[in-house]
Write a protein that binds this DNA or RNA. Structure first.
Lengths: 340, 340
DNA sequence: GTGAAAGCGCTAACAT
DNA sequence: ATGTTAGCGCTTTCAC
């Protein structure tokens, strides 16, 4: 391994001081244009690369953002990450990504790892079964910005990026009502997570606002996997009378559900109309195409990182803006269209 | 922001030297058992966390692996990343992830960023239009391990992790032949990428081995997006005679193709049998379910990182093992089943 | 088994 | 506009 070039080598080669080289390399406005050009030229020539550790050690900033997500391999999450990476990369930040695999335990371990890696800020979407957020206290105590997205937690010091899940669910359910459904089942996940609790609320209030009865026995709660959707379909088929609409809190589960219903000879949307959530690619492939709520993952990732960086660079009082809500819209497809 | 505890604080509090604290914290065998215990105790008590920059600055290792992928938000890629993250996390390594967005230019920029971040190793899947791999030379020159996966490049100093794309494509095509197809179109991507070149070869040799003619006019080349698949279907519909089989180099494109063919009243698999590639979730949703090749992304990610780490820890001569081939299998579903 | 001290490469006062 | 200097927190010889 050949020796690394340092700013001292450049300084020596150019007959200037290391400080000037450092300033030039960091585009400090005070340094002479010509000097800067010379520094850049010899830096390239000598194969110089900055040593981020030395720099970080001095500056006490890492230019690295931590990201903790439940799982990486869902369409929604990978879109979020893609959006985050884009903005972070453009702003010269790195992303340190880890998955909690939906368990609070691994989430806590990841938080500590992020803490020890001294990330400048942390972006989190909570695991399925996280009960409280005390494991984030090292960040909060130290004043390191902590930002939640999608599956968020309430905390006075933290910003959240979300869509209006309640409103979206309200629209989705009202749409089913408008299509003539009066007997609507809702399939949801762990109600500790805001996204599912809010979607349930939206469903409930939509029924009430449309003067339809709300009944707990019409709520099916599971892990929202495709398999869970197939099982839920089994339950639905046993109901008497058969429901005429199903609002599912994600698309994967909706798809599983539709598969079984179709197998059982149910006509969608004629017998049962279905609405999903997320606008996953499968929603445009399943037949009939699935009505769903577009969940802007890529944008959510962009917004989350942009806000965090603005705050880190000192341009925003993040406390003043505790929740950022992105727009989502209902995408109506054949799975719910019974009229017009 | 309260002051960070350093090893000096621990040393002072304990009446020993910082050197001893450092040794204890790093489990050096020379340090006294009791001293070590005391050090650990006060470290915890004082809320000490190691400063990786100072440590890295001295040790010249980052325990960070760079990953460059074309896009993050495909099922295959996010599975790869999930597998990588799992193994890296367990081994105490961090992952620095960036996307080339399928352009050679951004890929080169990412490579430099990774180089400047001093990753201990680099894992790459090439962009769609990368022509040569000269932009990786900083890594090769410095002897920093460079590992390609899926979309790989030949290089004597680099290991590649792949599936046997040719064999998989051969099986896929032979399967179509076995189902009675004699007129098989192949839709593929940029032939500079090994994955597409090899799949084309497998298709070609399968035809030859089955004594069917190989004809360039049966090759459609595009970017393999769903939209491209829809356009390709248009071309197919213009062919006379109509082909009776289509082997597509990925599932997204196959799905787009199927949508249009079905709209045009073509019966799948009776009129045209279809086989895709990757075993994307959509393949189990499209109707009829798509026959496809399972591409073990999660495993590929695990294997790639595990190999890299073993090499970094000095237990393997990575040069001795230039290509690692994972198993893939043909998953036969209704889209190609015309017999039995 | 432990300590003293040098230095990894960089940045930011402060001085000129 | 540029130079001097003092660390950032850690590891690692070299002594003892």
């Amino acid at each position: 391994m050949e020796k690394e070039t340092t700013i001292y080598d450049i300084a020596k080669g150019l007959g200037v001081s290391p400080a000037t080289v450092s300033r030039a390399l960091n585009n400090s406005p005070v340094v002479n244009k010509e000097t800067r050009q010379k520094v850049f030229d010899t830096a390239t020539e000598m194969g110089y690369r900055s040593n981020m550790f030395a720099s970080n050690l001095r500056r006490k900033r890492t230019h690295t953002l931590g990201v903790i997500v439940p799982r990486l391999n869902s369409h929604f999450m990978s879109s979020v990450i893609a959006g985050m990476e884009k903005v972070a990369n453009e702003a010269g930040y790195n992303l340190l990504i880890s998955q909690s695999l939906e368990t609070a335990k691994k989430e806590a371990a990841n938080v500590m790892a992020m803490f020890n890696s001294r990330v400048d800020g942390l972006l989190v979407s909570l695991a399925y079964n996280t009960e409280d957020i005390s494991h984030f206290s090292p960040f909060i105590k130290k004043g390191i910005p902590l930002l939640f997205f999608d599956r968020v937690a309430e905390h006075p010091k933290c910003t959240s990026i979300v869509i209006d899940n309640m409103q979206a669910a309200h629209k989705a359910t009202s749409h089913l009502v408008a299509q003539g459904c009066t007997n609507i089942v809702h399939i949801t996940g762990n109600l500790k997570r805001n996204v599912y609790a809010d979607r349930l609320k939206g469903y409930k209030y939509a029924l009430i606002d449309n003067e339809l009865p709300f009944d707990d026995s019409f709520i099916i709660s599971n892990d929202l996997s495709e398999e869970a959707g197939m099982e839920a379909a089994g339950e639905i088929l046993k109901m008497n009378p058969l429901p005429d609409g199903v609002f599912v809190a994600n698309d994967a589960c909706a798809v599983g559900c539709m598969k079984i219903l179709k197998q059982a000879g149910i006509s969608i949307p004629k017998d049962i109309a279905i609405v999903g959530f997320n606008n996953d690619p499968v929603s445009r492939v399943i037949e009939p195409n699935l009505t769903t709520v577009n969940n802007p993952g890529h944008k959510m990732g962009e917004v989350a990182v942009r806000n965090l960086i603005i705050h880190l660079d000192g341009f925003s009082d993040i406390v003043a803006m505790n929740t950022i809500t992105l727009n989502s819209e209902l995408i109506i497809r054949e799975s719910s269209l019974r009229k017009g």
